[in-house]
């Protein structure tokens, strides 16, 4: 069996008295997209910093592509790509110059900035200064920069936050393309729909601890309240909502009674969203 691309073993980090990451353990398989979800201050960024060699774990160990990150950060960083949450591009330089600079730092030979810009939908804007880009274009360039070295592991921190739907979709497609190339993706996001559609597994982190880690489907199965929601026409002609819980012995009879006794206008099965589950597990919304 192939070794996981990312292994976190009992990772812990505290800022003074504040325990930001509280002994978490998980792994990410090669080619997998793992969604890392949690509210602000939950410990996501600190975890990413430890996994990418920006912070040295105070306890535990992080391994990326078989290399201990704390011991050989540069060896790891040569094989990964990072897209930061905050835009940190050289705005007085052009898009092409930004990419070429990082390609040189990574030692990429025969780097084709034009092709990469085209991939992220920035063809024709390469010569423009980044300072003149919109937020969406800057974010695309951020993702492109994370790809200059064709990384085996991608760390993406809120890559679609605040973007227009077109830019967000373009970036999601890129993430899927990268997965298709064989890259492992560690995706930090607030967007539950994004996590649901892109990620093979999601981890919920709250107050420095992982409170759940599984596939979105399994989490919904385990924590979700599966219901059928029907709209029926009442005696006064107004629509009324009926909700029936699935999975019980008497559900079939209840549905039969509903159709027999009332005029059903619409009926849908409903399952809990990841957000519902997060609130259920942590008691607070994902903001």
């Amino acid at each position: 069996m192939a070794q996981p691309a990312i292994i976190a073993e009992d990772l812990a980090y505290a800022y003074g008295q504040l325990l930001a990451v509280d002994h978490i353990s998980f792994d990410v398989a090669e080619g997998e997209i793992l969604g890392f979800l949690g509210p602000n201050g939950a410990g996501k960024s600190t975890t990413v910093s430890m996994l990418t060699g920006q912070l040295r774990p105070q306890e535990g160990r992080a391994t990326v592509l078989g290399t201990d990150v704390a011991r050989h950060p540069k060896r790891v960083q040569a094989q990964i790509g990072i897209c930061f949450e905050d835009t940190n591009l050289y705005e007085p330089m052009s898009g092409t110059e930004n990419l070429q600079l990082f390609a040189r730092l990574f030692g990429v030979r025969d780097f084709d900035a034009g092709a990469l810009l085209k991939r992220v939908g920035l063809d024709g804007r390469g010569k423009d200064k980044v300072g003149g880009y919109s937020k969406g274009l800057k974010q695309r360039l951020m993702v492109a920069r994370a790809l200059v070295n064709e990384p085996r592991v991608l760390f993406l921190d809120e890559p679609t936050e605040g973007l227009d739907p077109t830019s967000a979709r373009a970036i999601r497609n890129l993430i899927l393309e990268e997965q298709g190339r064989g890259a492992t993706v560690f995706l930090t996001t607030h967007d539950m729909h994004e996590a649901d559609t892109l990620c093979q597994r999601v981890a919920f982190i709250d107050q420095g601890r992982i409170v759940a880690l599984d596939t979105p489907h399994a989490l919904k199965q385990r924590y979700g309240k599966r219901t059928v929601r029907a709209e029926v026409e009442g005696a006064d002609g107004n629509l009324e909502v009926r909700e029936l819980v699935l999975g019980r012995r008497e559900t079939a009879a209840e549905i039969e009674a509903l159709f027999r006794g009332e005029k059903v206008v619409t009926i849908h099965s409903e399952e809990a969203t990841l957000e519902d589950i997060f609130i259920q597990l942590t008691g607070s919304p994902l903001v």
Partner: peptide
């Protein structure tokens, strides 16, 4: 201030 140093330091640049 703009965080570009941070971006440089997560490359092979020491």
């Amino acid at each position: 201030e703009t965080g570009t140093i941070q971006a440089l330091l997560v490359t092979p640049l020491t």
